[in-house]
Design a protein around this nucleic acid. Sequence first.
DNA 1: CACAATGCGGAAAGCGTTTTCCAAGGCGAA
DNA 2: TTCGCCTTGGAAAACGCTTTCCGCATTGTG
Lengths: 335, 335
Amino acid sequence: MVTIADVARHAGVAPSTVSYVLTGKRSISPQTRTKVRESIRLLGYHPHAGARALATSRTNVVALVLPLRPGVHLPVVMRFVTAAVTTARRHDMDVLLVTADQGAQGLRRVAGSAQVDGFLVMDVELDDDRVPLLRQMAQPSVLIGRPAAVKGLTCVDLDFESAGARCVDHLADLGHRYIGFLGAPSVVYQRNTGYAQRMMTGFGAAAMRRGIASTVLPAEDDYESVLASVRSLLRTQPAMTALVVHNEAALGWVAASLRALGRRVPDDVAVVAICPDELAEQMQLTSVQLPAEELGRQAMELLVARLNGRPTAPLTLLPPKLSGRASTGPRLRRA
Amino acid sequence: MVTIADVARHAGVAPSTVSYVLTGKRSISPQTRTKVRESIRLLGYHPHAGARALATSRTNVVALVLPLRPGVHLPVVMRFVTAAVTTARRHDMDVLLVTADQGAQGLRRVAGSAQVDGFLVMDVELDDDRVPLLRQMAQPSVLIGRPAAVKGLTCVDLDFESAGARCVDHLADLGHRYIGFLGAPSVVYQRNTGYAQRMMTGFGAAAMRRGIASTVLPAEDDYESVLASVRSLLRTQPAMTALVVHNEAALGWVAASLRALGRRVPDDVAVVAICPDELAEQMQLTSVQLPAEELGRQAMELLVARLNGRPTAPLTLLPPKLSGRASTGPRLRRA
DNA sequence: CACAATGCGGAAAGCGTTTTCCAAGGCGAA
DNA sequence: TTCGCCTTGGAAAACGCTTTCCGCATTGTG
């Protein structure tokens, strides 16, 4: 391995000088600078990350804590991941993967051994046992998702309540008066996952506000279950003319299920999805975008801000955006 | 931060003793050991990763190089990732995420600064520009996928040729004589991605061997394209009674496309997929398993082996496994 | 009984950086 | 000229760990 001393010797300067050339923390005369740069290039020198971490107590690595539990939609997770990594790289940081199954234990380990400068935690629950730990850790953290109390934290999330309301408003404006809601798998509601509940709350509240009858039901991620759920919704509310789907995995089966039950999209039943835009585009679904990339990017930017000592708001909510597509069709004639 | 010196002082021993208790590289009397352990617990001591890396020139971190390009199916990637991370943790290693878009450049950076002990590289192409670099790097690497020449490397892959053949054999045994092949998106073939080509090659060769007419076509990942491809296949080969699909993203549209063209699965057209078992189970498709978890696990195990100085075979091919399900139905009557 | 071998503990020398601290030269101002 | 400041360079002290080397007992062996 070629060290800073080798470079210094080769360039005929002191190690400290090389260091200053590298970090730019002090002015160096143009001559020595180019001389040093040349030696670095020639010898193919790279600073040793461990040594640097030891000296600066900065690793330039952030931990990304991934959920790997039933009910999370893997493609969406990947979107977060890629956005987070890309953004991190833009700030010259690397990303260490920590899976949530390692739990608070894993966080403690990584934080304690000073492997990372900060944490990006995905999929936080309303009452997450990692939150108290994150609060007291030396390293700053940013959460994607929204625990019950955000005081002293930095959280980023889609404004799911508004998203739910947005769906209702859109459908109501089109003249729909009976709307169903197909939610995430029931396990997601069983553990205290905030976003799913908030989405549903926003949906329900908006429906009440507009005097619209609404029925909600969870859905698993296979065809049979989706079919059963849709059938159940239709039985409960035979006049249902619109369906809001908050479940990426079920999305593929919704149209088929409706068709199997004799309803066509959008003529008999309008469908609005909450999912990444790309997916909606592919299936030609009117949708409220789930801006995974944007969330991942923002979260990482906030983390970088905190690492650089800049203060951040405890809660950043991204406003929902609705894109109209074929699945909601034109205004209902018989309002 | 609490250091090894603090622990030593608290326990009334020398730092070296604490180190030996931690690493177990020397025998320590039970008394001192428990005394030291107690101090460690009490002070909440964690060894500083950077310092350790500096002293041992081992980071206990491996890089996972992820593909993020068009045509790769994100859920499958996530399976690899989770299996790799889980396996790594079992060996007390962590995983640093490197996205393939950083290219050879990124590898050089991470390797040069000694951030990791080894590399796990996913989605290698037949003629991958990272391979020469990997060959000459100080850190060992394991590739998931199979470049043209594997000499001096450690590669893990599914035996895609056999997989292709396996599909043909299964269908031929059921009496099918005209078989179509719906492949990956065309971009995947345009870049030199070995697995897709090998799958197709295995399919074609087996068909030839058994005197079966075969037609192959790529498929994009939206309904319209799949429908077009299937229509095209049926037009080319009107007698087609079976379809092999090697495209996770298209899978969801295949049955719908066939139905739209007046064919029912499996009565008119039998379908065999190559995809993760879970997906096949969900859709009730006869399939050759794409053992993403198994590949990820094996790859990481091999990497760990190499890190510990154990020799490894240059190429490990996992045998394909076929699971019969509803989509191929019983034997054809009119053979 | 002498002497090597073994078990266990400590002192100290790295590992490769960064970052003080000191020094020397050049320069402008008094 | 002299004083002090600014710029640029080097020496050396951390940073927190591992590991070699050394030393002291205690044991086993001829």
